[in-house]
Amino acid sequence: MDFAPYIRDIEDFPKPGVVFKDITPLLKDPIALQKASEALLDFTANMQIDKVVGVDSRGFIFAPMLAEKLGAGFVTVRKSGKLPYHTISESYNLEYGTETLEIHSDAIEKGDKVLVHDDVLATGGTAQAVCKLVEKLGGEVVQCNFLIELTFLKGAEILKDYPKKVLLQY
């Protein structure tokens, strides 16, 4: 299925000069949503995955669906100050600023095989920070998967040490 017609560009969001890739048209279409879920699941064929990490906030949409289908646990990585329990954190640069992510200190167990999921791979800073958090807790990142990659921002280069899969590239 061609998912490109279900992604719309929003100019100057969240800051001037940024073209935001809006996935809500894909999410509201039941067939596109189902097919995207299936395609993301296909990326994990024959992989052992213990935990699926969803990245705040749009990574929370597909990550729990993937976890359920894989018989794995779902873990949230959130922006600083949003998680209620003991956390560890990692700061990083993004296309339009800096941010800090946190994960519960007991979310990943030593040796867990982890799939990291987010909606967009841009500069790679977010995904790299999440991978570092997983590794700090003793987990092994077996793959990062994304709905969209913005290739001109060269985020794949930052993630060169991790297997990655993407549905759409711009």
Rank of each mutant, 00 (worst) to 15 (best):
F74K: 00
Q143A: 07
D9W: 00
A122P: 03
S105W: 06
I10C: 00
C144N: 14
G71A: 04
K113N: 15
K160M: 04
A122C: 03
Q34P: 00
I158L: 10
Y170V: 05
F146S: 02
L167S: 10
A32Y: 15
F62K: 11
Y170W: 09
L33R: 02
E38Y: 04
I10H: 00
K82Y: 07
V55C: 08
A122W: 01
F20L: 02
K164L: 15
E157L: 12
F62W: 13
N145Y: 03
D118L: 06
P16L: 05
G54M: 05
C144V: 05
V19W: 10
G111Y: 04
V52N: 06
K28T: 09
M47A: 08
K154R: 10
G124W: 05
G97F: 08
G139E: 05
E11W: 01
Q48I: 11
P25N: 10
G59P: 03
E99Q: 11
L168C: 12
V55A: 06
A32W: 15
E38I: 02
Y92K: 00
K113L: 01
D161G: 10
E99Y: 02
T87H: 09
A63V: 08
V142H: 00
A36Y: 10
E109K: 11
K21T: 06
D29K: 09
Y170F: 09
M65N: 03
K160A: 15
T87R: 09
G138N: 04
A127L: 14
D119K: 09
E135I: 01
C144K: 02
K21R: 15
D50A: 02
S57R: 13
L133Y: 01
P84S: 13
L137P: 01
K132L: 13
V134N: 08
L150E: 05
F3Q: 02
I7P: 10
T123V: 12
A45L: 03
H104G: 08
A67N: 09
Q128F: 07
L26A: 02
R8E: 11
K136L: 07
G71Q: 06
F62D: 10
D29L: 12
V19L: 12
G125S: 02
Q169K: 15
V52M: 05
Y162P: 07
R58A: 06
K51C: 12
D161Y: 15
T126N: 11
A129C: 14
P84F: 06
E95P: 08
A45P: 00
C144L: 13
L40Q: 09
K21A: 10
A32R: 14
T44G: 01
K15P: 00
D29P: 10
V18S: 12
T123D: 11
A4T: 13
K28Y: 03
K35W: 04
P14G: 11
S57N: 08
M65Y: 04
M1Y: 14
D161A: 15
V116N: 11
F60D: 09
D22Y: 11
A36M: 13
I61S: 08
K21Q: 14
G125P: 04
T44D: 03
A156T: 07
K79C: 10
I49Q: 07
Y6G: 01
L83Y: 15
L41T: 12
M1K: 01
F60R: 05
A36P: 12
G124I: 01
I108P: 03
T87K: 10
Y96P: 06
F20T: 00
A39F: 02
A107C: 07
D112G: 07
N145S: 15
K28S: 07
F3T: 01
L41N: 03
R58M: 08
V53I: 13
K110F: 08
